[in-house]
């Protein structure tokens, strides 16, 4: 478990340091995530302590999000003023995005499979 947490912290640290060193616009934790992904691809397998730590962290993720989410208490005015715009944006935007992505990928996949048959 500790080895897994340590791995995650070290990769985040490396990512944050690289972001600072090269004044990158990419968040350090994302650089750390990409490096961990590359590390796992090269290593060709994960290890038990990492699996455990990841399971634990992702299981309690909502608890880590809550402190920021409570900040919504400072935004009631914005939400009240722009309620209709926000509602339409979320409902219509999510609906058409889902239609668009699902249909696009479905067409691309069926084209690819037709190519294979011929």
């Amino acid at each position: 478990m500790l080895k897994g947490i340590l791995t995650l912290l070290v990769f985040q640290f490396i990512g944050e340091c690289l972001a600072k060193l090269f004044t990158l616009k990419i968040p350090g934790a994302i650089i750390g995530m990409v490096f961990l992904l590359l590390f796992l691809i090269l290593r060709k397998k994960s290890f038990h302590a990492l699996d455990n730590s990841v399971f634990w962290l992702l299981r309690y993720l909502p608890l880590f999000i809550l402190p920021s989410a409570v900040g919504i208490m400072t935004q009631f005015d914005t939400i009240a003023n722009e309620a209709l715009a926000i509602l339409c944006s979320l409902v219509v935007g999510t609906f058409i995005s889902l239609c668009f992505s699902a249909k696009l990928m479905d067409i691309l996949i069926s084209k690819k499979e037709q190519c294979h048959e011929h």
């Binding site: 995650l8 750390g32 994960s46 962290l57």
Partner: peptide
Amino acid sequence: LHFFLGPATVALALPLYK
């Protein structure tokens, strides 16, 4: 608690890898 969002983001590499 907020601090753990960083390691949790790095942790997302594992489901992606799988």
